[in-house]
């Protein structure tokens, strides 16, 4: 089973051989092993969001050994180090709830609870239909629009792969997002608060309404 899987993976990777070539072309010839992270990322997208050992071995390593010559263990080291590489099965839509302090203060826990309750799974578990899984992520830098979730979309392989942020969400909104994703609808990423534009304040600007004053400067002539 794994061998067949690996073989099919390998064929797919052969199809994206041009992508691999492109990744490798970013690195100097004596530092080809630096391409291990983008290649692993590509393999993860190809393999529906996670990296089994067979995928690391069969698909990556065949390529790696042929092209950039690193031992399998060096690949495992990288894959285990980065939490973005999933080493267990995830859903087609991998929902990552930010749990870092600003999001937590703004109610990330409630959002996660709502998600888990709605999907009927535990954290890091995949729903029965294989569509969703919920994980936790560290700060994504959207603290101004906290709380936020990230949706890694592995449903369309590496070509249609997206990694979108949904910000300013509420427990109600997050369930809506899940349902929209289930229907396969595209919804605009970014803030989910209709009153806000990007990171701007709700209801329009409150500061910088006129031309800003120049900063107080030294009197250069006096020197």
């Amino acid at each position: 089973m794994l061998a067949r899987l690996a073989a099919s993976r390998f064929l797919e990777i052969r199809q994206v051989f041009r992508q691999v070539k492109k990744i490798l072309s970013h690195y100097p010839s004596n530092y080809k092993q630096s391409a291990v992270i983008p290649l692993l990322d590509l393999a993860q997208q190809q393999h529906g969001g996670w990296l089994p050992v067979s995928a690391m071995n069969a698909s990556c390593n065949i390529l790696f050994n042929k092209i950039i010559e690193v031992a399998p263990i060096r690949v495992y080291e990288v894959a285990t180090f980065y939490s973005m590489f999933n080493r267990s099965k995830v859903g087609k839509y991998h929902l990552l709830v930010c749990g870092t302090t600003p999001c937590m203060i703004r109610g990330a826990r409630e959002i996660e609870d709502a998600l888990l309750k709605h999907l009927g799974v535990k954290r890091n578990e995949v729903t029965k239909d294989g569509l969703f899984s919920v994980g936790e992520t560290e700060c994504m830098g959207c603290c101004v629009n906290a709380p936020m979730i990230t949706v890694a979309d592995y449903s369309n392989g590496s070509e249609g792969y997206t990694y979108n942020y949904y910000e300013d969400i509420t427990p109600k909104r997050v369930v809506e997002i899940v349902e929209l994703l289930r229907k396969g609808e595209k919804l605009p990423p970014g803030t989910q608060n209709p009153g806000r534009i990007k990171s701007g304040p709700e209801g329009g600007n409150t500061t910088l309404l006129s031309e800003p004053k120049p900063p107080p400067c030294r009197d250069l002539d006096a020197c």
């Binding site: 031992a71 263990i73 060096r74 495992y76 080291e77 285990t80 180090f81 980065y82 939490s83």
Partner: peptide, 9 residues
């Protein structure tokens, strides 16, 4: 023998 490695973080 490239068998051993440092896994995890």
């Amino acid at each position: 023998v490239q068998d051993l490695g440092m896994l995890g973080r």
